[in-house]
Amino acid sequence: MIDNRFRISRTFDLFRLYIIENRKFLLICAAAIVGILICVAISIASDVSYKRAYSMYRPDLDPAIPYLVPTYIIIGYIFAALGASFMFSELKSKQGRIRTLMVPANSSEKLISRMLVYVVLYTVFYVLAICIAEFFRDIYLMAKMTVAPVTPLYTIFGNEAAINFLTTDKYPILLPCILFVGVFAIQSFFVLGSTLWYKYSSVKTFALFFALFFFYTISVFMLGSSLSEGKTYNNLDHFMSNYFGYVFLCFEIIVCLFNWCMAWWRLRETDVITTKR
């Protein structure tokens, strides 16, 4: 008799099943991510002047890092969102829905096995892809014989200047936390989207997410303004050095959990025929 409770072994069986059945698609995506990151890294490196030290007051900082880090983060967010849209792409067809729904596993196991691919594995792979891109940037700049220091990001842990760029003096961990949890929060919208809309899920979710984000931003600034007795602050330092940063982080976590729960519920309630009116 099969156990109806959540089983980690069954989750890993589903994970393995998904990876092997979709290996071509996943390999193409992985190659595309690495290729795009290498192109971006080399293109930024060739735009930045390495002929002289980047600045008088930050002579130890690789001049490309202030451009590379935000670019990597933005690209990481975009791929995370796109990947999450593919999480349940087989639900697009009736045959795919039958195959997914008739696997003897519960909805939690099905959802978590996909999250292992598109959240955990993606995050690890993206960090690796950045390292590969940085390695190629390093080789490219070595060939160019630069003057300014070249610091590939995989050496970040030994590079105080690069770490300082990502943190503030007062709350060193908050910004990376917000950015890191932010990926999962945005992904969670697209995960939910992939269980709600089977066709053009990424476009539909993006439109809805953009509308929600716009509404949220306006609300937070209005709330912030009223809490700050009419004074408004819109610079990052103020945002980070106040409780708004923590509120935002908590909000991201709540959004994440809410969306994942909704996706689980939606998956549980999915029918094989979706034209019911």
């Binding site: 008799m1 099969i2 156990d3 109806n4 069954r10 087989e90 067809s93 009736k94 045959q95 795919g96 039958i98 195959r99 008739m102 696997v103 003897p104 596993a105 519960n106």
Partner: peptide, 15 residues
């Protein structure tokens, strides 16, 4: 899972 593992459906069309 216990009941799904006891039922197998072969639809008319499948992937």
């Amino acid at each position: 899972p216990s009941s799904v593992s006891d039922i197998f459906i072969v639809p008319e069309e499948f992937d």
